[in-house]
């Protein structure tokens, strides 16, 4: 009995060695066609960047490619869903009430690309669809401060707002 189990152990050991060798051999042979570029799918898939810049233009990028964000502030309601859902906490949005129109005035809308991970969650939750991905993907800067994208309209004082209120009927008449 004892001698049998010894042989069984040796057999199992040799078998595992054989399988290790065989799997290594198989994986080694998988890459050989890539080495010589045999077949259409085994050519280089990477592209030259940044020098020379790839022949692809922004229009050649995939439909769902997620580049830098753009917020159409005229359509933006200032609801703040994008800021709430952002996992990187990179959107800063501050709004002022606009009693006359009932809409919110988006005073500050800053996106910090130093934090943004371009996950696209903010675009998905945006109800008026004002926030969109562009196809622009080059965003390197020398200064940290330049990493901000600002779409806000700026703060408005009470006097300025009253002035606008007075101008509105005149515009409607014209």
């Amino acid at each position: 009995m004892i001698s049998l189990s010894i042989f069984r152990n040796i057999y199992a050991y040799m078998r595992s060695l054989y399988w290790g060798f065989r799997s290594l051999l198989e994986s080694s042979l998988v890459v050989v066609p890539y080495l010589f570029g045999w077949g259409e799918h085994r050519k280089e898939v990477t592209e030259q960047y940044p020098d020379p810049v790839s022949s692809r233009t922004e229009d050649d990028l995939p439909v769902k490619s997620r580049g830098m964000l753009f917020n159409d502030v005229d359509a933006c309601t200032g609801c703040g869903d994008c800021s709430a859902v952002c996992p990187a906490n990179c959107i800063r949005i501050e709004v002022q009430d606009q009693p006359a129109t009932g809409k919110k005035w988006v005073a500050v809308y800053d996106i910090d690309y130093g934090r943004c991970i371009l996950c696209g969650l903010c675009v998905e939750v945006c109800e008026p669809a004002s926030l969109k991905h562009t196809k622009r993907y080059e965003g390197a800067h020398y200064q940290r401060e330049h990493l901000f994208s600002q779409f806000g309209r700026g703060w408005v004082s009470k006097e300025q707002r009253e002035k606008w209120e007075r101008m509105r009927p005149m515009e409607e008449v014209e």
């Binding site: 890539y34 010589f36 050519k43 898939v45 990477t46």
Partner: peptide, 14 residues
Amino acid sequence: KFSADLQARIGPSL
């Protein structure tokens, strides 16, 4: 260059 060829990359080219 050899690793790049195996992995369908371009490798050093500049």
